[in-house]
Design a binder for these strands. Structure first.
Length: 711
DNA sequence: AATCCGTCTATTTTT
DNA sequence: TAGACGGATT
């Protein structure tokens, strides 16, 4: 037992061995949070405090859940089988499968991912003849999810105005449709479980009796419903162990409610707030920068990271003429790091928004530098995979209307929009599923529909009793999907993905206990398949700051540090938006172990227009003594690096000068400080310049009177 | 049924 | 700039 606790620092040890009462662990970046969480579980079990059956551990991502299980298994000699470790959604799925009847669901309810939900909402809008210009599916979808995440059903929505009333109607109709089709969206998994447990005392008491210890990871990311869910499950007696970092709360836009941390302290009478502040990841200067930056935020629980490692290198700040120059500087720097022996996979290139990756990719590509961009479509979200899954859904349940509509005419088999509309009308009139309605259809368009019904029946019959991977194979052939993509010009990748689906099914059988088709379909909805086919090549890692959370790199580039981009201009309008941007910057900085580059560009192409930006205020918030400028700065003659980097890969050039000053140039104004010339008008003594002073705003100044100096 | 073309829009994202 | 989407065209 002792060796479990070996090498823990005093705070970690205190957290791991806390007595039986609820606790909040404020775990700073790189402070060994996952280690504390997993060791705590192992310790609880090893000391006989609780059996594996009595442990429930909740995470946000499948990756984190998997990681946790692996680490616990490594620490304990016994099986972790009885333990429930999973995402909120995964655990809800498990509960609802076990108690589908009590939850009012069919046994084979299916899970809608965001795409499926979008399609389902569109069908509702059509059925209600809603004007989709006034009530776009996207907004309706957002409205529904937001309401559910507040724990509200359609009837609970407060009707403020006509628009809300309409959205509430759409919400009600959507829920009805889902219920009819046995479909459950992500938020519904949570809400349905919450309602199940609040109504059903026997079940509630059963699970409260079972899960003596409930542990939650990334607690700062919980939304209101998730918190109420936890509170309901924990009851008054169980012991909650919540781990989180308010400074890393960056998901407010999708409902995360940091206030849950303070509420948790009150609701669970937390006597022990333990702060993990010793950082095992980054060198001193990097942490100083992070601490200094985040201290500008007012709403904090308070925390200061420290390390026993040395100061390390200063942060390197690079100012580029344009986004193109920034990218080529970055490329050269990466080449140098690689020559110095660093693995590319240990270098992270971060940016605020996805659009920024393009220029960087272009430069890396020209240099033949391997890179991997995170984000974008994941395996189970690809169109061809969605089609294949729709066929599988029909095999599992032919009355799945969403799946029916998706593939009835894909590959094309002569069922046009007219036939489908007629079919939908017939289904509506008979209060039946499309499949049922199709079985009773006649006429010439009925022939094609009947053929499709026969195909579904045949698939079902032929795959009966087959193992999962074979079922997938048969479906791929019989449905005509593979043949269709083989015939397509650029279909090779898609065919490959379809074949990969067979592997995914085989892998699923190896990893999971349940092997039936509907379990696989649930898996496909809940696990987007990010880790599917991760290539073995050593490649530079490109991603948004958001997706970098939880990761670490030897060297990190934070690019595009410009006012308007990072902090993003939209965020300044939201209340608390700037603080969230700062937390985002804090997350970015704390990803770096030993080397951190910060870069910005005077000129950037955005939405097809050239923008002239001022350096991000976040750069000003870093202590000067930990920063080294790679480019000259006003008032500093000396500089310790290359002034202007290599030419960009393609002709990205700043505009030519008009008079003494050129557009894109940095200038200094006695009152407004530093700014960037954005536009000019007139000439000679009449000339006026438009200058972006960042925080001071945008100004038009007459060249004759304004005392401008080149910066 | 597939393709073309104009229009629109443009943080951040896991489940 | 570039992608997504809807409507019209072939």
């Amino acid at each position: 037992m002792l060796n479990l606790l070996e090498n823990l620092n005093p705070e970690q040890l205190a957290a791991v061995t806390l007595p039986d009462q609820s606790a909040l662990i404020l775990a700073g970046a790189g402070s060994g949070k996952t280690r504390v969480l997993t060791t705590r579980i192992a310790w609880l079990i090893q000391t006989g405090n609780v059996s594996p059956n009595g442990v429930l551990a909740v995470t946000f991502t499948n990756k984190a859940a998997k990681e946790m299980l692996t680490r616990i298994s490594a620490m304990l000699p016994i099986s972790t089988r009885g333990m429930w470790v999973g995402t909120f959604h995964g655990l809800c799925n498990r509960l609802l499968r076990a108690h589908y009847r009590d939850a009012g669901l069919p046994q084979l309810f299916q899970i809608l991912d965001s795409q499926d939900q979008h399609a389902a909402v569109k069908r509702v809008l059509k059925a209600l003849s809603v004007d989709e210009d006034r009530f776009p599916a996207r907004e309706a979808q957002y409205f529904i999810s937001a309401a559910k995440e507040e724990g509200k059903r359609a009837r609970d929505v407060e009707i403020g105005d006509e628009i809300t009333r309409r959205f509430a109607e759409i919400y009600a109709a959507y829920d009805e449709q889902c219920q009819r089709e046995g479909a459950v969206d992500f938020a519904e998994l949570l809400l349905r479980t919450f309602e199940l447990l609040s109504r059903n005392e026997i079940l509630r008491e059963h699970y409260r009796g079972r899960f003596r210890h409930i542990l939650v990871d990334e607690f700062q990311d919980t939304n209101r419903l998730q918190y109420r869910w936890l509170k309901l499950l924990a009851g008054p007696k169980n012991i909650m162990f919540a781990v989180g970092d308010d400074d890393q709360s960056i998901y407010r836009f999708r409902g995360a409610h940091v206030g849950n941390m303070a509420e948790f302290e009150r609701d669970f009478r937390v006597e022990n707030v333990i702060r993990l502040e010793q950082n095992y990841r980054s060198h001193g200067h990097i942490l100083s920068a992070a601490n200094a930056l985040i201290s500008h935020n007012r709403k904090r629980l308070g925390k200061n990271l420290w390390t026993s490692a040395g100061h390390g290198e200063p942060l390197r700040v690079y100012e580029a003429q344009s986004d193109g120059y920034e990218a080529s500087w970055l490329t050269e720097e990466v080449q140098a790091l690689k020559r110095a022996g660093l693995r590319l996979a240990d270098i992270g290139v971060l940016y605020r928004s996805n659009a920024q990756s393009r220029v960087i990719e272009h430069s890396l590509f020209s240099a033949g530098m391997p890179y991997r961009v995170y984000g974008g479509l994941r395996f189970f979200e690809r169109m061809e995979i969605k089609h294949a899954l729709a066929y599988l859904r029909l095999v599992a349940n032919p009355e799945d209307d969403g799946a029916f509509l998706r593939v009835a005419n894909f590959p094309a088999r002569g069922i046009g929009a007219r036939s489908l509309e007629a079919l939908q009308d017939a289904a509506k009139a008979g209060d039946a599923s499309l499949y049922k309605a199709a079985s009773g259809l006649s006429g010439k368009s009925g022939a094609a529909v009947a053929a499709f019904v026969r195909l579904v029946d045949a698939l079902k019959a032929e795959t009966q009793g087959l193992p999962l991977p074979e079922t997938v194979e048969v479906m791929l052939e019989k449905s005509g999907l593979v043949a269709h993509y083989k015939a397509e010009r650029d279909g090779a990748d898609r065919v490959e993905n379809l074949n990969e689906l067979v592997n995914a099914a085989a892998a699923f059988m190896n990893e999971e206990e349940e092997h039936d088709l509907s379990a696989f379909l649930a898996h496909a909805s809940l696990e987007s398949g990010e880790n599917q086919a991760a290539e073995g090549v050593d490649a530079l890692q490109l991603m948004t700051v958001h997706s970098a959370k939880g990761l670490e790199f030897h060297a990190v580039f934070i690019t595009g540090l410009e006012e308007g981009l990072f902090p993003h201009e939209q965020s300044v309008l939201e209340d608390d938006g700037l603080e969230e941007e700062r937390r985002l910057m804090y997350v970015a900085i704390t990803r770096a172990r030993t080397r951190l580059y910060l870069s910005f560009a005077q000129t950037r192409m955005l939405h097809g227009q050239t923008r002239y930006n001022v350096a991000s205020r976040f750069l000003d918030e870093l202590p000067e003594e930990v920063v080294k400028r790679l480019t000259p700065r006003p008032g500093h003659a000396r500089f310790d690096g290359v002034a202007w980097g290599p030419e960009p890969a393609k002709g990205h050039k700043a505009k030519t000068p008009s008079h003494g000053f050129r557009i894109g140039q940095s200038v200094l104004h006695p009152k407004f400080g530093q700014g960037v010339i954005v536009n000019s008008e007139g000439s000679g003594t009449d000339a006026r310049l438009q200058i972006n002073f960042g925080k001071q705003g945008m100004k038009w100044l007459a060249l004759e009177y304004a005392k401008l100096t080149a910066a």
